[in-house]
Design a protein around this nucleic acid. Structure first.
Length: 283
DNA sequence: CGTTGAACCTGTTTGC
DNA sequence: TGCAAACAGGTTCAAC
């Protein structure tokens, strides 16, 4: 579920209600998706949530002791939350009954709890001290909405891998996932199996524009809700109503009425129009 | 480097 | 109806 637009939607929803709140206590259920569960229990109580931001598909809760806040806005430490496929992070009244698969409860100083639920537990959670924060950011690729055209092209230059694989690779661009990769490629008329190095500069430029277009349009829609994505307020997004190829196998292309096809590329279902997105010459 | 397949989990949908 | 297979927004690792 959660790619850049969904994660950003969650972050924006959390920002107002969470900023300035202090974590009072930590309660953990299943912990196999947490890097170091003991560190959460040891470090989080007493810390204040100072910032709520996003890096790639990670939610970053910037934490501090509330006393001496760094002037530069940097935090003493951070709690990273990756929603995986089915993760959900939202504040609830402490009295509210727990939803199934609730694995983390962070009690806040205003009587609420920040709860993390995740049926499949493909998500991740980790507490990082400031010293490890920089390396975390450095390991991730560029923010697709922050790169300009030439930076975008530079990231693909000299890469012989299939374009779909590179769009999904979080070390290249951080935040794109299966939905928005397919939607961007359809808009740019590029076949998912095209090798990046075979794309003409004009096609790379087009792809850069369409990636931005799709992400921004989805952001305005509050993301895509395929089955279970909900923002921090429990509301679904509606960008799924705008999908042009994703999960539209066998249906008519919005441009040329050809039947949308689905193939596996980079191990993931990939939807494309065989007419609008001609397959590469050979391999 | 690049590609594939499996693994990690649970839930829902599809097909025989 | 019932059961098995396929599939799902993600990442990581081993093997070739």
């Amino acid at each position: 579920m959660p790619e850049l637009p969904e994660v950003e939607t969650v972050v924006r929803g959390l920002r107002d209600s969470l900023a300035g709140r202090r974590i009072v206590s930590v309660r953990l259920g299943k912990t196999d998706f947490i890097d170091d569960p003991a560190a959460l229990e040891r470090e989080l109580p007493g810390l204040r949530i100072e910032t709520i931001s996003r890096r790639g598909k990670f939610i970053v809760l910037g934490l501090g002791n509330g006393a001496a806040v760094g002037e530069d806005g940097s935090s003493d430490s951070a709690l990273l939350v990756h929603l995986g496929m089915t993760g959900n992070l939202s504040p609830r009244a402490a009295a509210e009954p727990l939803l199934p698969h609730t694995h983390v409860q962070l009690a806040l100083d205003d009587g609420r709890e920040l709860r993390y639920t995740d049926p499949r537990r493909f998500g991740r959670m980790a507490w990082l001290p400031a010293t490890r924060l920089a390396e975390f950011g450095a390991r991730l690729g560029a923010e697709p909405l922050a790169v300009n055209e030439s930076e975008f092209a530079a990231r693909l230059a000299g890469r012989r891998a299939m374009i779909k694989a590179l769009l999904l690779d979080q070390h290249v661009f951080a935040g794109l996932g299966n939905i928005y990769a397919d939607e961007s490629l359809w808009r740019a008329r590029v076949h998912p199996r095209r090798h990046a190095s075979s794309l003409k500069p004009q096609q790379v430029c087009r792809l850069w524009r369409e990636v931005r277009h799709v992400l921004q349009a989805s952001l305005r829609a509050g993301g895509s809700s395929i089955s279970d994505f909900r923002n921090a307020d429990g509301q679904p997004g509606w960008y799924q109503l705008r999908h042009r190829v994703y999960q539209r196998e066998g249906k008519a292309c919005y441009r040329c009425r050809s039947k949308i096809r689905r193939v596996i590329v980079a191990g993931r279902s990939s939807h494309f129009c065989p007419q609008c997105q001609p397959r590469p010459r050979s391999r």
